[in-house]
Design a protein around this nucleic acid. Structure first.
Lengths: 304, 304
DNA sequence: CTCAATTATTAATATCATGCATAGTTGTAT
DNA sequence: ATACAACTATGCATGATATTAATAATTGAG
């Protein structure tokens, strides 16, 4: 195969034109070359193939048996290459049976996913989605070896291996959640009150030690009391419902819990940071039409 | 298909190396290029394919799905091209069933062909040979449209369309043939005796008006008396056997007749020209392995 | 023999892949 | 953290070669 290094593969297109036309000038037009260039190319072909390929006869040029023998093969090869190089056809969601795996936060799973999935059932009935919680290792290895297609919901303040591609997804205001029976708290919390109270704190990932709220407090040389740490929003909400502690969490999620549990939304202290959630994927699959579709679908869903 | 004009097909080889190796430097070595050239080529590929193709990961470069999808197709195309471009395998005489058509003179048919064919039966049992007499039209059209593969035995003094390829074949001395009962002629003919006698003259081709002997005489302002003209050696020989006329013909042929018919060889006048016979074929098939084999076989047979 | 059509050739030009040197990137070991 | 090793990417000069325009050579036809 290495012998091909000697040969200018571009001559194949010229060969096809020449032997098809049996006419140097016409072949030249066909591939947008000058007659001269075509003649030169023919000579190069002749030399390489060690065969005249085209011979003058009474009725113009005529192809040699060798040339005729090669022509269909060359055509097949060119067609093959043409098809291979042609852009891959777009992902057809309506007919796909692909299985996607999404590593996500509770926020995505609880707030977004149910509605999103219902929507997917309509447009992509064959597509299946595995949802799993984000773990430490998700980001890199799993994305790379394709055991996870997408990481959804991680906070922007987090730093991930730089080769991963991040896309902004949703920005959510943080609010506080208190038990309905918790009468020590009003409609709104001052900063001082926020610092005085016990907190149920959660993290997106196991082993994660920072979160936007604590970072924000730290910037002001402040801190709050972590009574409970969990990586599960639902657990946090139930603790809040049953104790005097409060939790700080994205608005939509708080709203969801306020409908399900005996908890209520309390306005947080002023300037409470906004949480910017992102979607991560591996650059290897940046162009994967299916993944592209999924990413767009997730991002557009929230717009609705 | 014309879209391929935009694409440098030589990049296919580079693509194959790159995606096979997932390593720019190694791929470069594989195709005897510098690492730099390989990197540039990768960029060209990336641009054309609109896909990164190779992405850095923890374990070196890794191919994108698109690249992996293309790889086997590209390999197939390259293999196809490789096989197509590879020299056509030589003609296998021992196994071929090809039919050759030879247009020839009586000389070839009578003197050479029987032995040649016997020889062919040994080495190429499947090969079949049609023999037909040379006609006017043989040379050009028939050779071109392949209804005749070879014209064997024509005299070199003849002029044929220049595009036909001529090869020297056999040189034969001319001798005279006289009837055994013809007592008016001795062992040898002087020039004068040659001019005084009646001649049976033959021509290689119908419509042919020249022959080496008459040309030779004409150069000396001489001429002989044509009692009979024929294109058939055998007919001529039989006339000689039964009349007082003589014929002038190639030595081997004369020898053959002297064994079959009541005729004897008589030495011709001094300086009688030599007849140079040739083999003609069309340049279209100059490289045809089968024809090449046949030509070589015919030429070598005479050497034996 | 000349004309028309076509291919081949020649020499100047333009293009582009290549190589060199070097900078940038990533992962690992200290 | 820092330095190092292993790679890949980049900018630029260069050289190989495809291309062009002009022209010659070839062929068939009238």
């Amino acid at each position: 195969m290495q012998a091909l290094r000697q040969f200018d593969l571009n001559l194949l297109i010229i060969f096809e034109a020449l032997i098809s036309e049996c006419h140097v000038s016409r072949a030249a037009e066909k591939v947008f070359l000058s007659q001269s260039a075509m003649s030169h190319a023919l000579n190069r072909l002749r030399e390489y193939c060690d065969d005249p390929l085209l011979v003058r006869t009474a009725n113009g040029l005529q192809a040699t048996p060798r040339a005729l023998e090669m022509l269909p093969e060359v055509r097949r090869a060119l067609q093959l290459i043409d098809r291979t190089l042609a852009k891959p056809k777009a992902f057809d969601a309506s007919r796909s049976n692909r299985v996607f795996t999404i590593a996500c936060t509770d926020y995505f799973e609880a707030v977004i996913f149910p509605g999103l999935f219902a929507c997917l059932q309509q447009t992509a009935p064959g597509v299946r989605i595995n949802v799993e919680m984000i773990t430490d290792a998700s980001s890199r290895e799993k994305l790379e070896n394709r055991s996870v297609d997408l990481v959804v919901g991680v906070d922007a303040s987090h730093r991930y291996p730089k080769h991963l591609v991040t896309e902004d997804w949703i920005s959510e205001h943080l609010v506080c959640l208190a038990g309905k029976q918790n009468t020590r708290i009003g409609e709104q919390l001052s900063l001082q009150a926020y610092l005085d109270i016990s907190h149920v704190v959660f993290f997106d990932q196991v082993g994660d030690t920072t979160n936007p709220v604590d970072s924000w407090l730290q910037n002001q040389q402040l801190s709050r009391h972590h009574s409970v740490r969990t990586t599960n929003y639902m657990a946090a909400a139930r603790i809040v419902a049953q104790t005097g502690a409060i939790a700080t969490l994205p608005y939509q999620m708080a709203r969801l819990f306020s409908e399900l549990l005996p908890v209520r939304i309390v306005a947080p202290p002023a300037n409470m940071p906004v949480i910017d959630m992102q979607i991560l994927h591996h650059p290897l699959f940046d162009n994967d039409p299916g993944l592209l579709w999924l990413r767009e679908t997730i991002k557009q869903y929230e717009v609705i």
